[in-house]
Write a protein that binds this DNA or RNA. Structure first.
Lengths: 388, 388
DNA sequence: GAACTAAGTTTATTGAATAAACTATGACCG
DNA sequence: CGGTCATAGTTTATTCAATAAACTTAGTTC
């Protein structure tokens, strides 16, 4: 469809690129973009814009909407995302279960399921679930994104300690059943994108740090994952950041790892686990040792400063369970980061917004990879905000 | 010419992109690329490849070379880089002087000059020198790259402590005189590119760290500067990396800065200055305190580990005067970096190769920006190797 | 010397964007 | 209320760049 590499060699690739640009505009301004608006924004002629829109409508990716108010002449026909036909398959794999979501092109969840398994049955159960989806949504599936804990290049799982996988060609396996492109995404990367995509002006580098029992990092550039090999990128949990003889011993056996100081377990004690809800964390944090939190903040801030300085990051976002620590933690981190000489940015540090829908990050990465399209920030905020 | 943004909207942009691809191939394989080879490598037809080559020859960017040996049929005509017509202007600005180099498209230096100035006369002398070049090389100038110490986005100098400049629109100023595109490049970035470009397989992220009296970093991706805003990127000299109460006080007034431990001045004493040659540094290093070098190596390694882990860097390269420290320094850094848990890369650290020609880095950045072309590693090694 | 092979060119065709004329629909204004 | 203008969108002829296929050139192989 709009797939294919971006090598701009032939006329067809120009058409594909322009289709993607037009589609992107509709995704950015669903319900308000028009043919004339696409012509203006792209610099293409109105005739070309109309032709592109006609093809996108034919592909069932967008639909004609209502007439806009006149701005002095003929009223424009608005364009919206077609939410009825195509679905994105999102598969979130965790050690003992997986969530399956079918997401419409406008970001709304069509259906969600959950399957549970053991280490032994995981492969079989997953394959079965994927085969079920392939049968039920035959013809409507557009792309699939698979989120999992572990290192991946999008095609293979290099290493997942939690899942016990080493070098598994998972994308290929699922593609054979589904018949659509499948993209694997690291869980922290997916979380980073889910947050970054909700920002209106996602310009420049943003450093995202997930803090739970473990610590992982992801870097986004202009709202998308930073380019380059991501095989093992972001694995900062076991980098040494404390150096005194009194540095704590990490569960990995070494001393002074970032995780041994700044993980939730380090700051709140072994009672913490990743499945806790915010209230439970807040309660646990109330009885936490101030000094542990301060040490965690210090170690984290050291990490942040270095990385932010190298990349000239515009912002640092902390996600995961650590968000529930609220004002007991963030101000300490920010203060330590701000203790900086001139010449280096005083990068702002903040918590990620309340959890977006679990599927938006993966769906966004898959969309972006396959169609070159990103959802509008406003739309994402609405999609994950179950009010209204 | 081949300039212009890469928006692939119109047929003309396809032509431009294909011209750049063809030109890139000749730059990669000067003297051995052929029309048929371009057709094979790009997937374009032989007719198109011939047409592209004809246009590039017409633009005086490449020339027909000798006949290649037959591979079973008609002998191919090889293509070479046209080194006679166009020149790249390279301007390396330092506090009290500037070097001007005119570099042919094949990387050979056509001419070099040097102008000296004081803080007061700098602007006037530079403008005069640029005007001279514009007159002497009228019609032959292709692009210009300006290397300077300080932060820049390529168009403006945001801040240069060494030059005493703040927010100077230097590119615009020179372009008005020269009539060609001018690109400003930070000196450490230029150094990083000069080194990275000499590597045969420059895939993935590479972290380059310049160590002299100051410390700066640059990140390359696949042999080119990492994308994204570079306004203040790489300013890591004054990030805190030592935390004990006994951490040294930095010249910036704070404690524990990377520079206060790992700069050449910190490791070798105040006798060091950036203008020293390698022998002088070696001599100075001979009498240096082992402990100072060890502390410098430790602080540097801490920095390296974090950044390499976040980016999953393939390699770390140390450049600048620190190269002269040789085995008294590098093994300490590598050992400290290697002290790492599983899950994080054991990234190799090495010194940059012997200085490439001072102009290749800037010229490469300018070439890459303006024509989308990179020199072949082999060619760069030859150009900076005054033997043969 | 005949058959084959690879390099490169010529010519007619195709795909996609453009320019310009044209239709449709509304606002504004005397 | 009807004329003029402005904006949205379509139709048609044209242009640009790549393609396909036939063709020329120049070598190797047997």
């Amino acid at each position: 469809m709009l797939n294919g590499d971006d090598a701009l060699d032939t006329q067809a690739s120009v058409r594909r690129a322009n289709l993607r640009r037009a589609l992107q505009l509709v995704f950015r301004n669903p319900g308000s973009e028009t043919r004339a608006g696409i012509a203006r924004a792209t610099g293409l002629t109105a005739a070309t814009a109309s032709s592109l829109v006609a093809e996108l409508i034919d592909l069932q990716l967008i639909i004609d909407g209502e007439q806009a108010a006149s701005t002095g002449g003929k009223r424009a026909t608005t364009l919206s995302i077609a939410s009825e036909h195509h679905v994105i398959l999102v598969l979130v794999i965790r050690p003992t279960d997986a969530r399956i979501a079918l997401v419409a092109l406008d970001g709304t969840e069509v259906e969600t399921r959950r399957v549970a398994f053991s280490d032994e049955s995981r492969d079989r159960v997953l394959d079965g679930a994927v085969a079920d989806i392939a049968a039920e949504y035959s013809g409507r599936l557009l792309i699939a994104g698979v989120q999992l804990p572990g290192t991946t290049d999008g095609r293979r799982v290099f290493e997942s300690v939690q899942l016990g996988w080493t070098d598994v060609p998972l994308a290929e396996r699922f593609e054979a059943v589904l018949g659509i492109p499948v993209l694997l995404v690291n869980d922290v990367d997916a979380e980073a994108i889910a947050k970054a995509a909700r920002e209106d002006e996602s310009s420049g580098y943003r450093l995202f740090i997930h803090i739970g029992t473990g610590i992982g990092a992801a870097v986004t550039l202009d709202g998308e994952l930073a380019p380059g090999p991501r095989d093992r990128a972001g694995e900062i949990g076991h980098v040494q950041v404390e150096f005194g003889d009194d540095a704590r011993t990490c569960r990995c056996g070494r001393q002074g790892c970032l995780e041994s100081a700044s993980s939730m377990t380090a700051m709140l004690g072994d009672d913490f686990d990743d499945a806790m809800d915010d209230e439970a964390i807040t309660a646990l944090a109330a009885s936490a040792d101030d000094e542990h939190l301060a040490e965690g903040a210090r170690a984290l801030a050291r990490t942040i400063k270095l990385i932010a300085a190298v990349l000239d990051a515009a912002e640092v976002v902390i996600g995961g369970p650590a968000r529930a620590l609220g004002d007991r933690f963030l101000p300490l981190v920010q203060a330590e980061v701000d203790y900086t000489a001139t010449g280096t940015a005083n990068v702002p540090v903040r918590y990620a917004d309340a959890d977006a829908s679990i599927s938006t990050g993966v769906a966004q990465v898959a969309l972006s990879s396959a169609l070159g399209v990103r959802w509008s920030p406003a739309q994402l905020r609405a999609a994950s905000d179950p009010v209204s």
